[in-house]
Design a protein around this nucleic acid. Structure first.
Lengths: 244, 244
DNA sequence: GGCGAGATCTTTGTATACAGAAACCCTGTT
DNA sequence: AACAGGGTTTCTGTATACAAAGATCTCGCC
């Protein structure tokens, strides 16, 4: 019935800011991340326009950018849909992120100042607390913040931007392929260990730490290819759009 | 006075194909690569629309996608311009490409079939011939084809797509920062050596080969930061658009 | 001669209209 | 009951109109 973004749109317009394509990109991205927009969801331009109170022009630009970020697929003359990365692509995305984030971690080791290290330390701690409280959304948020911080502070900005993209993409597939029974993808020791290596400046240890961390994360997923868990037909067959 | 794309547009329309945003993206990309559109060139939407015979809607989508590819910059309420990557970004782009293409080469080593190897061998040979003939544009084309072929056949498609992007970006900065006196960026032994490693399947040798090749390429550029060769003011100050 | 204020022009941002493609539904037939 | 066909609906592709932001130019002043 009602849209997912009621309050945020109201807040934005109340604050005097007019809705731009960037706003829509952010909101859709976040909704995909949190699985409020599951893969295959139809994103018709007019519906989105009505929801956000803008015309198709703005929505169109937003969808084009989301397609460039691999969040949605856009085929000619067809409605845009939330992308459903395959198992194969999931493995490849993880491999790419291991390579890139490993390098960023190595570059970053020993080059962060005390303030930055303190920020990370605080995030690591808050992630552990959230996990202890069973507040999984908060835990995910803090975990993402740690990785995003690395991407943002990467001495190599090009690699940093690439890492930002890969973090988004891996988050999507984690949400998608999380093993059914698993409550959380928390790995107790990984982030503290990473922080230690970043502090001491051991580049190769930091790289290995990130590598193993991401490998462990991937191993937590249900990527058994025998029964394609993402049944494309089932997903793409239904009519659900952005309103329910 | 007249546009750079006269013939190609005529050919496309004659062939019955209507001009799409993809067509424009390709043409602008190529023009930037070959420096027919130097950095800083203004790309007004109406002018492009007139040239390609389409309305601003199509041009707009093309520009958005070019911006996502880092080929042009789009600032709110300002005309889109061909991007002029800084020296710093150039170094970072090369570093990123070394990382990614090195990995792709390592993955690819020993996994190409005879047909694919033969294709590469032919390209390597033709590149050498073109260089001998002094036909630099042809030489560049064949060299690019070799690297693109690696990107396309990458077992990891995600890394392959990233590599495709990085090849474009490095090509742009090579054109930008090529040392003034240098006729060609040809390195006689690198591509044959790479081919040999791909054939024998020595992953680490292939990785090192790519790494050294790209490092040598970067060293051929004039990245002396003391006098910023790309004088932003000089470039952005002038009025030249896409027509002359 | 240099500099600033205002008018003018250029260019983008957004909405909207219309045409065409795709999806859907309903009906009639086998 | 399954299926093919045609009409309807939905949705995208493209062009265009208008408003607002930015750039430029001119003129008057110091």
């Amino acid at each position: 019935m009602s849209s997912i973004w009621q309050e945020e749109i109201a807040a934005e317009t109340r604050a005097g800011g007019r809705i731009s394509d960037r706003f829509i990109v952010d909101k859709v991205r976040k909704a995909v991340l949190t699985q409020r927009l599951p893969p295959g969801t139809r994103l018709p331009e007019v519906a989105l326009g009505d929801i956000f109170g803008v015309s198709r022009s703005v929505v169109r630009k937003a969808l084009t950018r989301l397609a460039a970020d691999y969040v949605v697929t856009q085929q000619p003359n067809q409605v845009a849909r939330v992308r459903a990365p395959s198992i194969e692509e999931t493995r490849e995305t993880f491999a790419a992120r291991r390579l890139v984030e490993g390098e960023v971690a190595a570059l970053l080791a020993g080059r962060l100042d005390e303030t930055q290290l303190a920020t990370i330390a605080s995030l690591v701690e808050r992630e552990a607390e959230a996990h202890a409280c069973g507040d999984e959304p908060a835990r995910i948020e803090h975990s993402l913040a740690i990785h995003h911080l690395m991407a943002e502070h990467s001495p190599n900005r090009v690699l940093g931007a690439m890492l930002t993209d890969l973090i988004l993409r891996t988050s999507i597939v984690i949400a998608l392929y999380k093993r059914a029974g698993l409550a959380s993808c928390y790995l107790t020791e990984d982030h503290p260990a990473l922080l230690a290596h970043l502090r001491t400046g051991d580049s190769e240890a930091a790289r290995r730490c990130i590598h193993d961390h991401l490998q462990a994360l991937e191993n937590l997923l249900d990527l058994s290819s025998r029964e394609t868990r993402i049944d494309l037909m089932a997903i793409l067959g239904q009519r659900e759009g952005v309103t329910e």
